[in-house]
């Protein structure tokens, strides 16, 4: 693992007006790793990702991406820099076709050949999407929509991919196949992945390191295996 983090948050405070959802978050993500952020409902996991992506603006603190401060950079400039999020609840474009959804992932790009190549690539990762390419996104099943959301994000050619609860509302067998693909993406294209999950068990099995978030604060940071074996964590998040 290289010493320089690709993404770093330093004492970030953020929230929605008077609601302070993040009360000083510091974390580092290193190139090529899978990093898990686990925490209960309302802990501030989604807010953390939205703050990184510039949708929610931090009140205080700094966010660095590849050594560059990105606090003030508008959200739409981040995908071209290689930072992309798959938001909670998938949020695909329901009345656009699968293909249009994917093309929108490549919105900032204008390398026709590259887009075509990546399109083939995501279709090979998710063959079901190719079968459904003319169908409206909203008519897909939950698992297929999650695949589409993931594929759409891949079309931005991310170097850091933020995933917000990819297992939400899906059957265990589909969750497993999606996590396998996530691990593949990480391995094959060296994409750094930040995985936000309530399903702590699965997240920590996939990740190399993890942070535990509680009501807007980081309470624990360790490698994934230690977290899995930590008695407190097992009690609080793994239902033991």
């Amino acid at each position: 693992m290289s010493a320089e983090p690709i993404l770093e948050l330093k004492d970030v405070h953020s929230g929605y007006g008077s609601i302070k959802a993040l009360k000083g978050i510091s974390l580092k993500a290193y190139p090529g790793e899978i990093l898990a952020i686990i925490g209960a409902n309302g802990a501030g996991k989604s807010t953390t990702l939205m703050t990184i992506c510039g949708i929610v603006h931090p009140d205080q603190g700094e966010i660095f991406y590849k050594g560059k401060k990105i606090n003030k950079i508008p959200a739409q400039k981040l995908p071209p820099m290689g930072l992309c999020q798959v938001p909670e609840g998938r949020r695909i474009f329901p009345r656009l076709t699968v293909e249009e959804n994917l093309i929108l992932g490549a919105f900032y790009r204008n390398d026709r050949a590259g887009i075509d190549k990546d399109m083939e690539h995501v279709y090979s990762l998710f063959p079901i999407l190719k079968e459904r390419s003319r169908q409206q996104g909203g008519t897909l099943s939950g698992g297929e929509q999650q695949m589409l959301a993931l594929a759409r994000a891949l079309m931005t050619k991310p170097e850091v991919l933020l995933l917000d609860e990819p297992s939400l509302g899906l059957a265990p067998i589909i969750v497993q196949s999606i996590f396998d693909i996530i691990a593949d993406i990480n391995k094959n294209s060296d994409t750094t992945i930040i995985l936000v999950e309530q399903n702590a068990n699965l997240a920590l099995q996939t990740a190399q390191r993890g942070y535990v978030l509680e009501t807007g604060r980081i309470t624990l940071e360790d490698d994934a295996e230690s977290l899995l074996n930590n008695a407190d964590i097992r009690k609080a998040y793994l239902g033991e």
Partner: peptide
């Protein structure tokens, strides 16, 4: 491309922004 950007905004503005559309 412009029309696609418009439609993505109609469908989900935040998602459009996350995909790099200057909403």
């Amino acid at each position: 491309r412009i029309g696609r950007a418009w439609e993505s905004i109609r469908e989900d503005e935040t998602a459009a922004e996350l995909m790099g559309v200057n909403t």
